[in-house]
Amino acid sequence: MVGKLIKYDFQSFFRLLFPVQLIVIGIAGLNRIVQIFENGTSTYKTVFISSIVLLVIACVVALVMSYVIGIIRFYQGLYSGEGYLSHSLPVTSTQHIWSKLIVSMLFECGTLLAIFIAANVATLGEVGVELYKAGGYVAKELFAQVHFNGVVFLIEWLLIFLVAMASSLLMMYFCISIGQLVNRKKILLAFGVLFGLYILGQILATILIILGPVFLNSDAIRTFLQGIFDWAAEHRIAAIHIASLLTLLAQSVLAFVYFLVTERIMTKRLNLS
């Protein structure tokens, strides 16, 4: 059943986002064609720069659209009229959330892939070859410094990226789920929750900034922190691993909390009125 859910969502996303991704690649192709007429005239420079700007805007729009459509599909599919059908299926709330999450993330990655393909199209030829050479050289230098840790770093950062993407989407699901608790102005409340989360983050950061010097007045804390910095300076690779894992853990915890609350609300407090 979950498979069918995913398939249905996939088709829905595909209809909306695939044309956008094709447009991005098409604009990249246009940019490459413009380069065929390269000369030193100001007309060419204007046209070329315009095509570059257009490509960048298209990439940004595609990314934003992927994200926004993911959120809209979640709301429409589970908390609007369509929700009556969705929640009548023999599928748990957890499976619903996973289905939406997986498909959203798939298409966000798909948009990133489209942008990557577009970049290749735009630099097709000698420029593209030189870019790959340069990228390969930098990667080689990096791996020469960190050896097998490079592979581990890649895996860690890929996981961080995926978990952060999931966490971001789940945060939106969380806001929408809280918003649907009321009968009126659900979207407004959802935005309010999102704004509240942002403010909460700012407050926590401010508290940290204010209390930081207070804590640092303590010799014990200062010594402890200095010890950590000294250790990190001596064991840089390990320190980066630890920082990456801590980041991954933090993102995972946030994602879990958002998921849990969303699932609970969907199971216990569903309000489709």
């Binding site: 030193g40 070329f48 420029v127 870019l131 990228g135």
Partner: peptide, 15 residues
């Protein structure tokens, strides 16, 4: 810088 340079390259002439 490579990523930024790739955006700023005019084309083969600059290369």
């Amino acid at each position: 810088l490579l990523v930024l340079l790739s955006l700023s390259l005019v084309g083969c002439k600059q290369l």
